[in-house]
Computed example of a mutant assay.
Amino acid sequence: MDKSKLLLVVVLAVLVGGCGQMDSSPEETEKTPAEMDPTDLPQIDAFQNEYSRELMVSTEPVAEGYYLMRSKIDAFTIWFPEEAVLMDNASGVDGDHYEKIRISYENKNENREYTGNFQYQYGGNAKKPERILDNLRWRWDFEDEWNEVEEEESRILYGIKEVAPNEYVVMGYKVSIKQTPQVIEFVYDVGCVNKQAKGCEIHLEEEKQFALQWVKSIRFSGTRSNGDETDGE
């Protein structure tokens, strides 16, 4: 075969190979729950609610009854109870330094309802979290001592108050120790849907453990939403 014919064969082979690569589709990236069809998601409130679905990280549970949720500004993650929903009208962000979320649950059959309110702050009150405690004392007329829980990278201070028969509030803050200044104020309010109905009974110890497990699940990201490190500022 002369050189001209050999060159033609090589060119054709390259063209055919290139077309084949163009026809082959790249591997599809795994979709987030927000990108999936709701019918393909777990048939539970956390995923069927359009607002909470947007913040879910995966359809795989992180613990029994919980899924991982990431904040809108990527400041923290938190376990999301499968039976709860995000209240979009009571949630919001302010730049990359403030975010509030409200998570709600109501079950008339078991006559129990709760809301979990979480407010993240970078800077500001995060540098002086005792202001948060002062504010909570004023808002809830709380006079007892605060309880403290030490974690590897954070510290939790909390208090409990019975605001009405069978209605309790667990309140306080979680502050980052290694990735300061970051803090999350929390208020967990639990009670009966129908306080007049028979069988309205809220167990304080169970609710306290539920609330603390929820708060302990929070993990600060250590970065702002634009990727800048928070440490040292």
Rank of each mutant, 00 (worst) to 15 (best):
Y188A: 00
K198Q: 09
S217P: 08
I156E: 07
R224M: 12
L86F: 15
M22I: 12
P42N: 08
E130D: 13
D144A: 04
K195G: 06
V183F: 02
G222I: 01
P26K: 05
N49H: 07
E82L: 00
F76I: 04
S71G: 11
T230Y: 12
E113R: 10
Y98F: 12
N147S: 09
I103N: 04
K108N: 08
G227Q: 00
G65S: 05
V149L: 15
F118C: 11
E30C: 00
L8Q: 13
L12A: 15
V16T: 02
G92Q: 06
K100H: 06
L136I: 07
Q213N: 13
G124D: 13
D96T: 12
G172S: 07
I202W: 12
E54Y: 13
Q21F: 15
Q213T: 03
T59W: 04
F220S: 00
T32A: 01
M1R: 14
Q182Y: 08
V163N: 00
Y98R: 13
L157E: 09
T77M: 03
V183A: 05
G172D: 04
N226Q: 07
Q182F: 04
R112W: 08
E152L: 09
G95Q: 07
A126K: 01
Q182L: 11
A75S: 06
S225H: 15
D144F: 10
I132R: 08
E145H: 08
L68H: 13
R139P: 00
I78W: 01
K216I: 07
K108V: 15
D189F: 03
G172N: 03
K100A: 06
D74S: 09
L136Q: 00
D134V: 10
K127F: 02
A164K: 15
P181L: 03
F118E: 02
I101L: 03
E99Y: 07
Q43P: 10
E83N: 09
I202K: 01
T32S: 06
K208W: 00
T77E: 12
G20C: 01
G232H: 10
V215K: 03
Q119P: 02
S71L: 02
Q121G: 11
K100M: 08
V62P: 07
A197Y: 06
V11K: 03
L133K: 02
W214C: 05
L157F: 14
G199P: 01
W79D: 14
L6S: 14
E106D: 05
E35A: 08
N89P: 01
Q119W: 13
F47C: 05
Q196G: 02
Q209G: 09
N89Y: 14
I73C: 02
Q213R: 12
G18P: 03
K31H: 05
F210V: 00
S71P: 04
V57R: 06
E148I: 08
Y122S: 10
K3L: 11
A164E: 13
R112M: 01
N166F: 11
A34G: 05
Y105P: 03
E60F: 12
D231I: 11
N147K: 05
E82I: 02
